[in-house]
């Protein structure tokens, strides 16, 4: 039996998509680039010290003194080591990827929760996205969006969106049938039921999904740097390829600090909301 020419099928599919949808991909590319640029400009606008103070104040209002100290010291260290601008571009990439993931993922998660047939399609696709090695879809991303930050964002979204979709769906499905029944019994429209009952109750689970999405997109930054996305990931990649152990550690530490701060921030945003309620 001859080998199935799966590889050449995929090749021609990618080529065909590149031809047919090139206008569409260009438009997306432009939008994503603008968003990343906007965030980078925003983060680079204030002096690093001022930005650190702003972050520390936010950390304080999220309600934890240790977090405030960690944020301040961690970012001062990053600045001191000379990775400020790289860290800011990485932050922009991560936030853009997370934003797109949430904007696409939450509605998809809601749809999957409501419709059994939708979830029958969405769930296996998510499995595919999460288990397919990231390097494999890095290449088509480059084909469609050329080199630079945009394919990095796209690859991050593909890799990081599944938790948001999964946990949004889970959160909504976990809302007890009695409560949705009560919402119906009082004459809610489906929109009212969704926004006044289901989404608020799904919020803790949904936020856990968003938190995971941010962490996953951060874990993509080194891989994204291989296709030309600038930032702290590029520093790590360069250090590793040049066998500069110390430099690699420095840059890696910056990633870790950024990761911890992002994680605690997103976790606490929800907790403080809950307290306020």
């Amino acid at each position: 039996m001859p080998k199935i020419p799966l590889a050449s099928w995929v090749d021609s599919l990618v080529e065909w998509m590149g031809d047919v949808f090139s206008g569409f991909f260009d438009a997306i590319s432009l939008i994503i680039e603008k968003i990343v640029q906007l965030f980078t400009d925003l983060f680079m606008l204030p002096h690093p010290y001022l930005f650190i103070v702003i972050l520390a104040v936010i950390a304080y209002f999220l309600g934890r003194l240790p977090l405030t100290l960690f944020t301040a010291i961690g970012f001062l260290l990053i600045d001191n080591l000379g990775y400020w601008s790289q860290t800011m571009s990485t932050l922009s990439l991560v936030i853009t990827a997370a934003l797109i993931s949430v904007l696409l993922g939450v509605p998809l998660g809601i749809w999957a929760a409501y419709s059994r047939s939708a979830s029958r399609i969405i769930i296996p696709v998510l499995d595919f996205m999460q288990t397919m090695p990231a390097f494999v879809y890095l290449l088509p991303a480059v084909t469609f969006f050329s080199l630079g930050v945009v394919p990095g964002v796209i690859a991050s979204v593909i890799f990081a969106i599944p938790p948001t979709i999964r946990l949004t769906r889970l959160g909504i499905m976990q809302v007890s049938g009695e409560l949705t029944e009560a919402a119906d019994a009082f004459g809610s429209t489906s929109g009212q039921k969704l926004f006044k009952v289901q989404l608020p109750l799904a919020m803790p689970t949904l936020m856990a999904g968003i938190n995971q999405t941010i962490m996953l997109s951060l874990s993509m930054v080194v891989i994204a740097s291989m296709i030309g996305a600038q930032g702290i990931g590029a520093e790590v990649y360069r250090a590793v390829t040049q066998l500069q152990i110390g430099k690699g550690f420095e840059a890696g530490l910056a990633v870790v600090i950024l990761a911890i701060v992002l994680d605690r921030f997103t976790q606490n945003i929800f907790k403080s909301k809950k307290r306020g309620a």
């Binding site: 029944e181 009560a182 009082f186 004459g187």
Partner: peptide
């Protein structure tokens, strides 16, 4: 459901 019939549930079903 809004104006004429209201319901009280066994397990309260409070939000």
């Amino acid at each position: 459901r809004r104006k004429k019939i209201s319901m009280v549930f066994q397990k309260f079903a409070l939000f």
